[in-house]
Amino acid sequence: MTPAPFDYAAPTSLKEALRLLDNRSADPKILAGGHSLLPLMKLRLAAPGVLVDLRRVPDLRGIQAGDGRLVIGAMTRYVDLEGSPLLHEHAPILAQAAGLVGDAQVRNRGTIGGAIAHADPAGDMPAVICCLDASLHLASPRGERTVPATEFFRDIFETALSEDEILTHISLPIPSTPPAQHYVKFRRRMCDWAIVGASVSVTCDDERITACRVFLTNVGPIPTRATAVESALEGRNPTAETISQAARGAGADLSPSSELNGSADYKRHLAGVTCSRALQDALGIGRA
C-alpha cells in the first residue's frame, strides 16, 4: 500500500514549521512518529498535500524538570518516556503506561505529542495525562497558549488544536509527596490496544487518602473521569475494602460504545475491574 503523492518538508526551526503549516492551500499536516498518520495515508483515509516532519525542529524532544514542573517535548518517544529517571521519580504512571503501548518497534517511533494530537479514544496517553493534570502548550503563528489536558480532548479524534497549531510540549506539576500511581490496560493479547484502561494517582497522609484522580481509557469518546470512584476514596483509609467498594461504582454512569473487542456491558464491568486493580497496585494492597 502506497500513500497518495504529497510533498515533504523537514524544517529546522519551529518558526519555519509554523510557516509551512500556515499555508493552508497546500493542505499541510504535521508528521511526528508517523505511526498513526502513515497507516491512515497508506489506506488512503488521509491524503495531505504536504507533510511537515518535526524531527529536525530543535527542543521538541526530551524531558526536563524546573519550577516545580516536568516539561516533556512533544517529539519525545515512548521508549524515552519508559526509560526516563525523572518520570520514574515524579510521574511513574507515564513511564509505565508508555511501556504498554504497542510493541518495541512502535515505542521506538511513536511520540507522546502525536498520540495526544491524534486523540484515539483507545489510546493510552490521553487518560494518563489527564490523570496527571497535565497542561498542553500549543504554538501557532498567532502566538502561544496553554490548555489543560482535561479541556483538550473534544471528541473522537478531535482536540482543541486548530489546523495551524503545533503541540510543542506537555508539562506536569511535580507533586510535593510522591503519589501512588498505576495504569492498568486490559487487553486480550500483548501489543493490543486497550479494551478498557484505568489510570489512578492517589496521595495519602499517614492514614487517609487526601487526594486522588481516576481517568478511564476507551469507555467514551474522550478520557472519562471516574468521579464516583474519586469521591468514594477521598478522606478514607486506603484498605482493600475501601478500594473494592469504590471501584464497584466505576461503571455505573458510563455509556461506552460496543465494539468488536467488548460490548458496552462488558466495558462497564471492566471499568470496575481495571479501577480496582490499578488502585491495588498503586497503593500496594494485595489483589483479593
Binding site: 515533504y8 523537514a10 508528521l31 508517523g34 505511526h35 502513515l38 497507516p39 507533510l51 516532519d53 524531527r55 521508549v79 510493541d103 518495541a104 518497534q105 512502535v106 521506538n108 517511533r109
Partner: peptide
C-alpha cells in the same frame, strides 16, 4: 514485524516509515 530493520540502532518497522524520514 517481518520488515523490522535497525534505524540508528533502534528496531523499527520499515513498512511504516517513509524513505525520506
Amino acid at each position: 514485524g517481518a520488515c523490522t530493520i535497525l534505524l540508528d540502532g533502534d528496531a523499527v518497522k520499515s513498512c511504516t516509515l517513509l524513505a525520506v524520514q
